[in-house]
Amino acid sequence: MCRNRVTSLLKQAKQLHIRQKVTESKGDSKQLFSIVNSLTDTKGSSTTSRSEQETFERAEALCDFFIEKLYLSIKPASLCTGVSRLERCITEIQEWMLCYSLKLNGDKTDFIVIGTKQQLSKLPSINLEVNKVTIEPSAQVKNLGVIFDHLTSSKKQSLNIARSANYHLANIGRICKYIDSDTTKTLINSFVTSRLDYCNALLSGTTVVSNLQRIQNKAARVISLTKPTDHITPVIKQLHWLPVQQRIIFKQLLSTLHSLSRPLPAI
């Protein structure tokens, strides 16, 4: 009995500590990530590895930020003319950057040719020359955190969302027994729901929405501690969550309403 009493007191103290930390973070994603990371990290070596990985990811993000992204619509018949226009445009950008002591790094520049399978099969090999560096077309590129591929499918983007969301759900699931439901909701909204909502209008009408719906269902089970065999729809309604497809439609309608009702900026 004494041992059980001590265990119960330790669990209550840990719950209070986590609740206070989450409340103090005031919804800051960086602080929340640090809290969850410290609670789920059991080995010192893993902390170093994760810290190095975060450094590499931030470095890649900075590289992506300085990559010049240009868009040009061309027909297969005028392919050579379109490529020449694109190379001249890149050259002008490079000259402008040199005037301000900046450098356009050809090794970190990507370009992608987008079209259907039939259209792409008719095209010859396309290469760009940037600062004496030959650039071959990429199968996929990332723009503002969204992955685009040459067939304009959304599979890569949905897989990226699922990978990130499942990682955070696993971490939250490890500590959910030490925190209350409101704290769990805060963590889920910061790490999972925000990823499901980011640029999700691009996924409207695609088949990958069902994959995102599974992630939302999993997040609802983590909050409510619902068994995998139980029906999840009543839980989502109790949480006042819209399903993913309805969230996308709601965002589109809300954006349309704002664009129509808000006054236009003065010219």
Rank of each mutant, 00 (worst) to 15 (best):
W96Q: 00
S255D: 12
N171A: 11
T256L: 15
K177C: 13
L169H: 10
I215G: 05
G106R: 00
A165Q: 07
L79K: 04
Q245E: 14
Q216L: 02
I223Q: 05
L239M: 08
P137D: 01
L254W: 09
K75Q: 08
E136G: 11
Y198M: 04
C99A: 10
L104T: 00
V113E: 02
T47Y: 12
L225M: 13
K237T: 07
T47K: 15
V22H: 01
R214Q: 10
E87G: 01
L102N: 08
V192C: 08
N189P: 08
T7H: 13
V209I: 04
K14E: 14
W241V: 02
I179Q: 06
P124F: 07
E24S: 08
L79W: 06
A165I: 03
V141A: 02
L187G: 06
I249R: 04
L128F: 01
W241D: 05
K26W: 06
P137S: 01
A201E: 13
Q118K: 14
T229W: 15
W96C: 00
T7W: 10
R58S: 06
S8Q: 10
Q213Y: 03
E57H: 15
D149G: 14
N131K: 00
K103P: 08
K69M: 06
K11P: 01
A219M: 04
K30F: 14
S121Y: 06
F111D: 13
T42V: 10
H240I: 13
T7Q: 09
R58Q: 01
D107T: 07
E57T: 10
L70R: 00
H231E: 07
A165D: 03
P124W: 05
K237G: 14
W96S: 00
E60T: 12
F66Q: 11
L257H: 11
Q252N: 07
V141T: 03
Q15L: 12
D197A: 05
M1E: 10
V244P: 02
S25G: 13
N105I: 02
K21F: 12
N160K: 12
T109G: 04
A77V: 09
L260G: 01
R85L: 01
Y178M: 11
K43M: 15
S224D: 05
L123H: 04
T40C: 03
S259P: 06
K11C: 09
T81K: 05
L102K: 02
S154P: 08
I147M: 05
L196A: 01
Q245G: 09
P137N: 01
L128G: 12
